[in-house]
Write a protein that binds this DNA or RNA. Structure first.
Lengths: 201, 201
DNA sequence: GTCTATAGTTAGATAGAC
DNA sequence: GTCTATCTAACTATAGAC
């Protein structure tokens, strides 16, 4: 392999750099989940990944850029925001995801902590969460509307309010679960609610 | 009125000091709501109340002590945690409180932001929120159990899960409302849920 | 009770050697 | 790409004059 052209960097260093970036994002994910964005420091992230704080800033130009990388990475890994397969029902997908979330408390904590923190002034994560909620509401609203067309939505239920309520219930129950895991059964609470909204086939 | 004894301080200075403390707590309430606990600084609180940061620490020994004062003050003022009058139904009390909350976004924001922030490591508000959730769940659970005795709880509904779910829905819908007030109707979402759980008289 | 001064820490970000 | 050194800024908290 000869030296590469300007538009095609060498494979070796490139792959290593990519790995470095991912390690940083994973460490930052942990730190932001444990301490929040304002409470988490670049120094602690750098320590976990085994480099200096200034070296870390070679990969991400600023703390806020690192936060956005963490949020986008979370979506990629968990498959969040993607559409479910047509064969799986809405209820099944929700419960399956809820059960999975019980196995990754750190991911749930990151989401819960940063979402609320993003409500504060000039928070770099604000746009991310605003758009996420808009997208989720639209997605669930469509699903409920489709169920209504099949006559499987309880009469009187408004699809848009049901979408917002389902997301709200999910978020809220995760907060209580993080505060005290034994106090609530996340999946069962969601199942109860969906059993009410959606009529059996 | 003569000068007071040692156990009964003079009214003048005492009342003034009490007023000072309340002004500080109100200012801190605003600052913590806008920036969170970690993001809010004593200097900004002091500026708002018109005194130096060190003078502020004369009234509250530490930042965490100020936070607890803010949280307890919120309960006192909003009447939160108190029991409702026996004549008023659970649903009526919830909807009334939800409608009231729409008029005080700062109070809702303080609660939402600090609750999630308290999930992070060594947060001074953690115990407050843990106990608050326990108390709320017990209170609503009792109400649902009472309704069940009257045959007014939908069959199959578990009072404890319903209590946790009601709180979760309420918390979650407040988050979405803070993120975008026009996106959701808080009171209507709660009304929908309670109409499902509770059968008409 | 209020202030100035400051200790003591930590933070994010930049400059430049290697 | 990685580091040391440094900058600038902000924070909580304490000491002590008035």
């Amino acid at each position: 392999m000869t030296t590469s052209s300007a538009s095609a960097p060498k494979r070796g260093p490139y792959a290593k750099s990519k790995q470095r970036r991912e390690n940083i994002v994973i460490a930052a994910h942990e730190v932001f989940a444990e301490h929040g964005y304002k409470g988490g420091s670049l120094q602690v992230v750098a320590d976990r990944v085994g480099m200096s704080q200034t070296s870390l800033l070679h990969y991400f130009p600023s703390k806020s850029a690192l936060l956005l990388a963490v949020l986008n990475w979370r979506d990629t890994v968990t498959g969040d925001g993607g559409s479910r397969s047509p064969e799986e029902s809405l209820a099944s997908a929700v419960i399956r995801q809820a059960r999975f979330n019980e196995t990754v408390p750190g991911v749930v904590e990151l989401y819960t902590v940063l979402c609320a923190e993003s409500l504060t002034a000039k928070h770099p994560g604000r746009d991310y969460f605003t758009q996420r909620y808009e997208g989720l509401r639209r997605s669930y609203s469509r699903s409920f509307t489709a169920l209504a067309r099949e006559g499987r939505l309880r009469s009187g239920v408004d699809p848009e309010r049901a979408a917002a309520s389902l997301i709200a219930l999910w978020d809220g129950i995760q907060t209580q679960w993080l505060m005290d895991p034994d106090s609530v059964d996340m999946a069962q609470c969601l199942q109860d609610y969906l059993d009410f909204l959606i009529l059996p086939e």
